[in-house]
Design a protein around this nucleic acid. Structure first.
Lengths: 349, 349
DNA sequence: TCGCTTTATGTAACCGGTTACATAAAGCAT
DNA sequence: ATGCTTTATGTAACCGGTTACATAAAGCGA
């Protein structure tokens, strides 16, 4: 008795374990583990020998056993509002690809901008075992932050740049981008402006964009009556509805600033449906720089956000963090204004 | 000595373990485990007692330990070409939501239609520990199927319906849908038809759609010269390029059948950029039924695929399968033709 | 009341890795 | 050659749950 471990008492999974590899290679299990994970701790020839035996036996370490004893899962959670918007799907793709390169898997959850659902999903992710968590934006129930701190799970906020926040982040300045866009519109000469903002109630990114718009308008002394601003959650359909509402209430507007490209595409479609020519009759601009918006006719003026790059930076930051090294508290992703054919000076009258 | 397990020798994670709960509740670890996982095996009052103690201590079972001893990870992998196309992102969202309801997490990987990358990612997913895997389409290296069979990891193919395949699937009939669409175009009176197909080389769904188109054309005795068919990978930009190519080579065409809605949107944009009126000058149709295509002006005629429903069915099938029960080998997702304003009879001349 | 089945609970051996600690071998200055 | 440090390897105790098996209690028909 005593040696009743793997290699004897196994059947369900016909898989080989460290003990099998150890026996076959004529070494101890510790050596096998070290040869595979801390190669510099064993002699080169032994390392090669163990590696070849392991390969021959088709050895795959059991991830659960590894996680249990090492206390690392090599899994990272990402809690994303919705991947149906390509701003997030591109991010997730890049994040996943880069994480894999460092040996991490991505566990994805989405909550469709529902705060309580986000909390539930976060709880579930934590209970499923993750080394770190990615969250979108800063605004959420403090309980979630408490949970993560209590469980000592590092986390990173994305899509938002907050150098003064207690939380780490990798993101961009939503307010500044929207301000730059609004200035651009104002400098084209527009003064009768409509705003089709995002779902500002629940989304700090959307709110910051609205703030940027307001800042620029104020700077130019342009006022925004309540009839010239409306909000919708992000969808092409809502973009159409939103523009329709604005045009009913304020047909004199010459430009519409949209909370993102999806709303802008909707607005563009609605304008076409109403026989308005863009940009001659109405200028439209968005935010995010989605590929599809860049291929619209006319091309939609937007603030380009390099989300794939944000995914890379996020992954790198997390990997560094989990390796125990220091990493910047906040990383700024640069955005840039991309003028397109959807904006032009207002028709002179 | 002997009782040196959790509750004494722990510090790194200040977390409580079964042994702590057991001690606090005055029962054995087995009872705790059973009270929490097989409630019917313990008396109701004990169950409640254990549950309350566990809640009070804020007990969260270690997922790695659970996975190690139970040989179930409660994680499901999904290997998706790209979530940047909302046909997949909607699917993934629904899949994840439904899986969570049954206690499973979703581990996501994407491979951008690159077969060798798919194999790598699959390997990594398997090594990361999953109970089952979701794959898109059937066509891939047999090695991948071998790997899964060897590791006894159940898998499910999506986006494709193959009652005769050895593999389980939840999907729809790509060929039939495309055939129906083509018939619709033909019945409108079009005979000068262009085809803008998907990346048929690497994608069995795209190939089946092309086959459906060809079947219908043949049925109507319409031939398709090589100049009237071109292929592109799925993007709006490629849709524009593709239509440009077709119009250069065959300006006489009155309708273009596209491999999916994304290409169709691109074609629509290109038509507009060229001053062609859709559908009067050119009819355009797509496939998938993306929201955005439904909100285009004109609305794009398409074959609607209920991907969210496919996500639900996929999740349910997997959960059933993993619970040991039987589940249908193949599940058909019904699609339907949705006529829009982007198609009309050809201009009579 | 006896004996048999059913139900509830406890004991401890797993699951399959990692790693602290012990030990042996090798390197090296004196 | 001696003693000390460094390097390579082995032994076995973990990690924290689950569950087979044993046992005790309860139910029940004759």
């Amino acid at each position: 008795m005593g040696k009743q471990l793997s290699g004897s008492g196994r059947r369900a999974t016909g898989s080989v374990g460290v003990r099998d590899v150890a026996k076959a290679a004529g070494v101890s299990t510790a050596t096998v583990s070290r040869a595979l994970n801390q190669p510099h701790q064993v002699s080169e020839e032994l390392r090669k020998h163990v590696a070849s035996v392991a390969a021959e036996l088709n050895y795959i370490p059991d991830p659960a056993a590894r996680a249990l004893s090492s206390q690392k899962t090599f899994r990272i959670g990402a809690l994303i509002p919705t991947i149906a918007n390509s701003i997030y799907s591109r991010f997730v793709e890049a994040l996943q690809r880069r994480l894999r390169q460092s040996g991490y898997s991505l566990v994805l959850a989405n909550y469709d901008f529902d705060e309580s659902l986000e909390m539930e999903e976060a709880q579930a992710l934590v209970e499923s075992g993750i080394d770190a968590l990615v969250l979108a934006g800063e605004q959420r129930s403090p309980e979630l932050y408490d949970l993560l701190n209590r469980r000592k799970i590092p986390y990173l906020l994305i899509s938002i740049y907050l150098p003064d926040s207690p939380h780490r982040c990798v993101g961009y300045d939503n307010r500044a981008g929207a301000e730059a866009m609004t200035r651009y519109i104002l400098e084209l000469g527009h003064r009768e402006i409509g705003v089709l903002e995002g779902p500002s109630g629940i989304n700090d990114r959307a709110r910051l964009r609205t703030k940027g718009i307001m800042d620029a308008l104020k700077d130019f002394g342009v006022t925004l009556p309540a009839t010239r601003i409306t909000g919708r959650s992000f969808s092409v359909h809502n973009g159409r509805e939103g523009l329709a509402e604005l045009l009913e209430a304020a047909p004199e507007i010459t430009a519409v600033i949209c909370g993102n490209d999806v709303l802008a595409i909707g607005a563009l479609m609605e304008a076409q449906a109403r026989g308005l020519t863009v940009p001659e009759d109405l200028s439209i601009c968005g935010y995010d720089g989605l590929d599809i918006a860049q291929d619209m006719v006319p091309q939609i003026t937007t603030v380009h956000v390099p989300t794939a790059q944000m995914g890379l930076k996020t992954a790198e930051s997390l990997v560094t963090l989990l390796s125990g090294e220091e990493t910047p508290h906040s990383v700024l992703i640069e955005t840039r204004l991309v003028p397109g054919g959807s904006t032009a000076p207002p028709r002179s009258r």
